[in-house]
Simulated assay, not measured.
Amino acid sequence: MKHLEVCLTPALLPLYDLKGSIVVVIDIFRATSSISYGIDNGAAAIIPVASVEECLSYKDHGHLLGAERNGEVVAGFDFGNSPFSYTKEKVAGKTLVLTTTNGTHAINESKNADEIVIGSFLNLTAVCDYLVKQDKNVFLLCSGWKNKVNLEDTLFAGAVVNKLKDKFDAWCDSSVLAEDLYLCAQGNLNEYMKKTSHSERLKKLGIEKDIEFCLNVDILDSVPVIKNGQIVRSS
């Protein structure tokens, strides 16, 4: 019996066993959206790290270094986690090292999984198709905001549940909750997302264009996965 589960925040991970599951890490605003965009634009690899200090330790390796905290680029780094920093012109053929407030934290907390996949609205259908082919339990991990639940990640989890629930024999109450929320919002994601605290946070930083971009659905066909500690395009 294959299971489809949703975890609304990494703070709840101790309650779950990730062994035997594919974890889809979700950080819509903006880490997993930017990672997906960067991999689709030809980045050779993206190395997710937990801390600013660890990111800085790669300074002499010839990689691009990205660090974001509280929605802003950390001083002295090449970029943060705006998708517009991950264009083909900037990242094609290059290895990036990245640390973010929420997304890379969730990735690092998922290391006991059989596999880790990066999900976003940008590659929603591609991710869902990939998950079906793997024929394993699926665990949708919402990065949230500093271990608190957020709307945007829950909505994406609901979108995945909506597409995949007929392919699984069992799912959890969090999956039902996430799908119900998505069904309320799917008619106008941009309008619904105005309710989210993180969108307000980003607007105060003057980067509304990032929000709009991250809510594009199915503009990418690549699926980023983690292999040997690096995020690469699935083969």
Score class of each variant (00 low, 15 high):
residue 24 V to S: 03
residue 66 G to L: 00
residue 11 A to N: 10
residue 16 Y to S: 11
residue 205 L to P: 05
residue 110 S to C: 05
residue 214 C to H: 07
residue 16 Y to D: 09
residue 80 G to L: 01
residue 4 L to F: 03
residue 4 L to W: 02
residue 102 N to A: 05
residue 87 T to A: 05
residue 35 I to N: 00
residue 148 K to D: 14
residue 10 P to M: 07
residue 54 E to H: 01
residue 41 N to F: 03
residue 38 G to H: 01
residue 4 L to D: 03
residue 204 K to W: 06
residue 112 N to S: 15
residue 62 G to P: 05
residue 98 L to Y: 00
residue 87 T to S: 08
residue 188 N to R: 08
residue 9 T to L: 07
residue 133 K to D: 13
residue 135 D to F: 13
residue 192 Y to C: 13
residue 173 D to V: 09
residue 69 R to S: 14
residue 83 P to N: 05
residue 187 G to Q: 09
residue 164 L to H: 03
residue 185 A to I: 02
residue 104 T to W: 00
residue 34 S to K: 01
residue 197 S to C: 08
residue 109 E to C: 14
residue 227 K to R: 15
residue 87 T to L: 03
residue 17 D to L: 08
residue 43 A to M: 05
residue 184 C to F: 12
residue 133 K to N: 12
residue 147 N to T: 11
residue 50 A to S: 15
residue 156 F to A: 08
residue 106 A to C: 08
residue 117 V to F: 03
residue 78 D to H: 00
residue 215 L to H: 10
residue 197 S to F: 11
residue 234 S to Q: 11
residue 109 E to I: 04
residue 158 G to C: 05
residue 22 I to G: 02
residue 124 L to F: 08
residue 11 A to I: 11
residue 223 V to W: 03
residue 47 I to E: 03
residue 157 A to P: 04
residue 84 F to L: 09
residue 67 A to D: 01
residue 149 V to D: 11
residue 28 I to W: 04
residue 57 S to A: 15
residue 182 Y to L: 09
residue 209 K to N: 14
residue 180 D to S: 15
residue 163 K to T: 12
residue 37 Y to T: 11
residue 171 W to T: 06
residue 106 A to T: 03
residue 12 L to N: 13
residue 119 G to C: 04
residue 190 N to G: 14
residue 103 G to F: 00
residue 124 L to T: 03
residue 184 C to H: 13
residue 198 H to K: 10
residue 83 P to D: 02
residue 87 T to C: 01
residue 129 D to L: 12
residue 192 Y to R: 06
residue 143 S to L: 07
residue 97 V to G: 01
residue 53 E to L: 10
residue 144 G to P: 05
residue 61 H to Q: 14
residue 152 E to G: 07
residue 47 I to D: 03
residue 30 R to Y: 01
residue 143 S to N: 08
residue 116 I to R: 07
residue 117 V to R: 00
residue 5 E to C: 10
residue 65 L to S: 04
residue 40 D to R: 10
residue 76 G to A: 06
residue 20 G to Q: 08
residue 116 I to D: 08
residue 46 I to K: 00
residue 54 E to R: 03
residue 192 Y to N: 09
residue 89 E to L: 09
residue 190 N to K: 15
residue 175 S to W: 09
residue 73 V to L: 07
residue 69 R to D: 12
residue 115 E to G: 07
residue 135 D to A: 14
residue 108 N to L: 15
residue 159 A to N: 06
residue 111 K to M: 15
residue 162 N to T: 13
residue 3 H to C: 12
residue 155 L to V: 11
residue 68 E to W: 00
residue 51 S to H: 02
residue 88 K to H: 11
residue 195 K to N: 14
residue 171 W to G: 08
residue 208 E to Q: 14
residue 134 Q to G: 10
residue 143 S to E: 07
residue 37 Y to N: 11
residue 228 N to V: 04
residue 223 V to K: 02
residue 67 A to Y: 01
residue 232 V to Y: 04
residue 152 E to N: 07
residue 129 D to Q: 14
residue 201 R to I: 11
residue 24 V to Y: 01
residue 9 T to F: 07
residue 3 H to G: 06
residue 90 K to D: 10
residue 153 D to H: 09
residue 109 E to N: 12
residue 195 K to T: 13
residue 170 A to D: 13
residue 3 H to F: 12
residue 225 V to K: 03
residue 35 I to C: 02
residue 84 F to P: 05
residue 9 T to N: 06
residue 198 H to G: 09
